[in-house]
Computed example of a mutant assay.
Amino acid sequence: MEVLGDFNQGDETKRNAHWRSFTVPNGEGSTEEVEGWLLTPDGEGPHPLLVEMHGGPHSYIMVDPNVHEHWDPLLEAGWAILALNTVGSSSYSEEFGSRLIGRWGELDLPQYLSAIDQLKQEGTVSDEVVCFGHSYGGFLAAWALGEPGPWKAGIVSAGVINQISHEGTSDSGYYVGSYAMGREPSEGWELHTRLSPLSRASRITVPTLILQGSDDHRCPVGQGEELHAALVRAGKARSRLIVYPGGSHHVSSTGKPSQRKDYYERLIAWTASMG
């Protein structure tokens, strides 16, 4: 675990940001290095941790105030933040990015879990861990909550929840879905079902906040509604679904100011209180 670099923006933000490298499982019985940002508040650890999962999945973590307005308030409140470029992220190699095809959640979640364990062992973070993600990150957050892990709560923002319904309703589903799954729907839905957080929603037991724009064409509102309905039926986790009228897939960054304010206030409050 090497500290590759850092930037600090002064005491007024309580931000200490470090570019970190972690040795994690590669899903093939060996290990590899992944990189990302670790932000910590002032003071000694261990700190509670928010794990931020990026979109795409062929995207990468950026330090962008437009989509990370929750970072500084959480740092001020004593939280650490981990944002990784796990397998599937772009800008590393074609092989690294494409290896996640047909393996959503199965390859990248273990890398997050390994990094969290390493941070716990070094005394940086505590057992209070919350996951948050938007778009593909929303998929991965929902997937993670249905798997054994350290989660005390989760926030799912505009995620892919049901690969089958997403394939037929998303403005990108008719081609992105088949590419992401590595097969056409006509070749069978077994993989689409297995790689849907909806299929494991009954395993979720921690408080789950679902944030969704009503006019999201990329990950339509039905995705969030399906997850919320499944959680309510299962009765094992407190679930709250917030739908922003007229909100697009980017309601948190380009939506109405009142909706953006509400979005981040809910995200921060849900994290800080762990649901």
Rank of each mutant, 00 (worst) to 15 (best):
P185V: 09
R233P: 01
E95W: 00
D108E: 15
E167S: 01
W151C: 01
P148F: 03
W270C: 09
A141L: 02
E2Q: 13
R203V: 04
M181R: 09
V206H: 04
F139L: 12
D72G: 00
V221D: 08
S59E: 14
S165E: 14
L107T: 10
G213W: 02
P25V: 08
G247S: 12
A77H: 02
Q9S: 08
S21F: 00
E33A: 14
N16S: 12
G97M: 15
L84Y: 14
Q121W: 02
C131H: 08
L4G: 13
L241P: 13
H228L: 03
W270A: 12
G146H: 02
F139C: 07
G55S: 14
Q259L: 07
Y175N: 00
N85C: 12
L140G: 00
H228R: 11
Y112K: 03
G159L: 12
W71A: 11
L267K: 11
L227A: 04
P148H: 03
S248K: 11
E28P: 00
G149T: 06
Q212K: 07
E122H: 01
Q118S: 10
S186Y: 08
F96L: 06
W143I: 01
K236S: 01
P110W: 06
G154P: 04
K152L: 09
V51M: 13
T193F: 13
P110H: 08
W19I: 15
P148S: 07
L100S: 05
N8C: 03
L84C: 04
V176N: 09
L145M: 13
G27H: 05
W143V: 04
A141T: 14
V156F: 09
G138Y: 08
S89V: 04
L75M: 08
M1E: 07
R15A: 14
K152Q: 12
F22W: 14
D108K: 03
S98V: 00
A158S: 15
G177T: 06
E184C: 06
G105V: 05
P46G: 05
D262C: 02
S248G: 07
G188V: 06
H192S: 14
K236F: 07
T208Q: 05
G154T: 01
L100Q: 07
G45A: 08
P46S: 12
L231F: 11
H249M: 13
H58Y: 15
E190H: 09
S157G: 09
E32D: 08
Y175A: 07
P41F: 13
L50Q: 12
L227D: 02
T208L: 04
H217Y: 10
E147T: 04
V51N: 12
H249D: 06
W151M: 00
P197L: 05
W143Q: 10
I116P: 04
R200D: 01
M181E: 06
L109F: 10
P110Q: 05
I242M: 10
F96V: 02
H166K: 06
E190L: 02
Y112F: 10
P220R: 09
P220A: 07
V130H: 08
G168F: 11
